[in-house]
Write a protein that binds this DNA or RNA. Structure first.
Lengths: 178, 178
DNA sequence: GAAGTCATGTAATTGGTTACATGATTGA
DNA sequence: TCAATCATGTAACCAATTACATGACTTC
């Protein structure tokens, strides 16, 4: 009911755009939301079941083919989604193990820390390329209103990742100067 | 033993700088690590007990006063910390509910989303001030090598928060132009 | 003497993840 | 035909958090 599991809202939000299977929901999470959210099959399927029992989503079982189960949102589900959307965000959390290791860097030493920064930089560089690709596509296809919001989240990712890369250069300079 | 609980390394890392009580460890996490890590009493105290049973930390009970328990790191603990530090960071995770709501923004509408951005901006602005204060202090006190690494994490925070604020302006402009 | 902080700890719950199990369909 | 992907689901586990309980010391 007034469940706090965020996965429920992720599912409702995605289904509010289009009907999807559990498998497709997972793909959306791993691609479109990847930068700021995550979710596993082990949470998605049980949540879909609970949402259905609650009347927030409806399922339609494909009789032919693979027999996949396509879920769509109900009015009740949309109301629940809306209710959550108006509430202030309660948790914006960043948890970077790289920064934790950096913080304790004295014990590891300069070289080790430079290694961590190097790896971090590479990962960010790759993800930035992906985000820039998304942005380019989304800028072309600004037909649906939805795309405007999607693009804003992508822009958020791009700008923070660029800041990360600038910081990497600064950090390397600081560490190499002695 | 080869436990994956990150709280263990947070504790070892902090104790590697100076002996602390569980309460003080919590304070360090809430202040110095706040921007990129978190931890509760409910994880700290049991972890301290387990680390002591493992011989990674030692406790000294204050006989007088409040009877607080001061923990310090052992050679074994330091070795464990080092072992973890050299391993590549496995998880750098950002989980922003604000971005999730933004992504589903069409259902909420322009005004509601602007509210969320406004609140986000205010929170970031406040935290940025704090981080800038830390940086100013740390730049003055660059005696201990430890401070260099601490300052780098603070600089990371400052630069990403500035990027967030720049993005907020951009997002508001995009949303207000229609 | 009251409020606030210092200080330690436990039990219940949570919001997941990981790993496993199963099988159909598609494309090289 | 074989690997990859599509597709659904469950059971065991896990690393925490939340809420509670207790009490001493400090400061106004």
């Amino acid at each position: 009911m007034a469940n706090e599991k965020k996965i429920n809202y992720v599912i409702l939000g995605l289904l509010n755009h289009e009907p999807l299977t559990g498998y497709e929901i997972k793909k959306r999470i791993d691609h479109s939301l990847k930068f700021f959210w995550s979710g596993s099959f082990g949470s998605i399927y049980p949540a879909l079941e609970a949402l259905e029992a609650d009347g927030c989503v409806e399922k339609e079982e494909e009789s032919s083919g693979r027999g996949k189960i396509i879920y769509s949102i109900t009015e009740k589900g949309r109301a629940l989604l809306r209710e959550w959307l108006v509430k202030p965000a309660e948790k914006d959390e960043l948890r970077y193990e790289t920064l934790l290791k950096l913080f304790f860097g004295r014990e590891l030493g300069r070289e080790g820390i430079l290694d961590h920064i190097q790896k971090f930089e590479e990962k960010i560089r790759n993800e930035l390329l992906i985000l820039e690709g998304y942005a380019a596509n989304l800028e072309k296809v600004q037909d649906e209103e939805e795309h405007k919001y999607y693009l804003l989240t992508v822009r958020f990712g791009i700008e923070t990742y660029r800041a990360y890369l600038a910081w990497c250069e600064e950090a390397k300079a600081v560490l190499q100067k002695d």
